[in-house]
Amino acid sequence: MTDIATMPRPVSFGRRLKRIMADRPLIPLIILLIILVVILQILRPGIVNERWLANTAKFAIPLAILAGCQTMTMLTGGIDLSVGTVATMSAFIMATQIVNQDPAVAFLLAMLPAMLIGLVNGVGVGVFRVHPLIMTLGTSLIGTGFLQVYQRTVIASGAKIPDFLNWLGTGVTYGFPNALLLFVPVAVLIVFMLNRTGFGRLLYAVGDNERAARLSGVRYWQVITALYVLSSLLAGITGLLYIGLIKAPSLSLAEPLVLPSVAAAVIGGTSIFGGRGGYTGTIIGALILTVLTTLLTILQMPEGGRRILFGFIVLFVTAAYLRIVEDR
């Protein structure tokens, strides 16, 4: 027993944990995910099976793509709160236009508002320098207004979910949800873009030190406009996927995903102040939130309680990351 006392004490546990968190944020996240799954298995023995895994993946995928929008905008120090409205708009337009239109035309019509909202967001943030939060909140209000006007023009024609979206959103092939066919390319594209392309580097540069980026010749407004258009288009595609999963077009379809998408990106280690983070962490963040939601549903926690918890998670994680960055 004496050798323990004489052993030189290494760096304190807290500091080491902090260093791990800062250098390899994925490891503690995966551990957290596993712990949550284990708790779930203990509370409801036998719940964790092949079907549950496919189901969890199905619900995590739309959240993960929207969280991807948040990750990219947060890297520049922004945020995109209009993703919920954009996703709802494209889903609703798709479901109502498919009745009378060719699928390709309906798809283009569905992506048009996404494109426009992204453009307005980008110009507002990039050229006029409005805070992204206020700007995207404003465009989402305007978008909801447009949707309400639009809804009354199509009440007569009714709505239906295209078979293809149904298959993509709900279908399972050999135990794998079909939604992975959409998600894997999107995820690979985002990760590749952030890590290997000039545009990705620009996002990190702008978020890390805007002034330095600008002085080194980055056209700030062009980067930001492209970013918000991309984010909106991704949100629009998510809407199409989500309508195939939920199967009930409504005017508040994707709204409940907005707050969790912010939380998923923050949990995944993307700094809300910009310049730090990546998409792999965000995907695990989305998985953690989906499992956590299942857990809270089993514990019969009401929707209000979940929102409170998500709020505190965002605050706590941001404060924790701030400490870690300050330490270095």
């Binding site: 912010v262 809300i272 929102r307 409170i308 709020g311 505190f312 941001t318």
Partner: peptide, 19 residues
């Protein structure tokens, strides 16, 4: 927490809405 006001009040927005 020394977290910027915009983040704290955003988190509180979630919390108060839930409450």
């Amino acid at each position: 927490t020394r977290v910027p006001d915009i983040v704290v009040t955003l988190a509180m927005l979630f919390v108060l809405q839930g409450a």
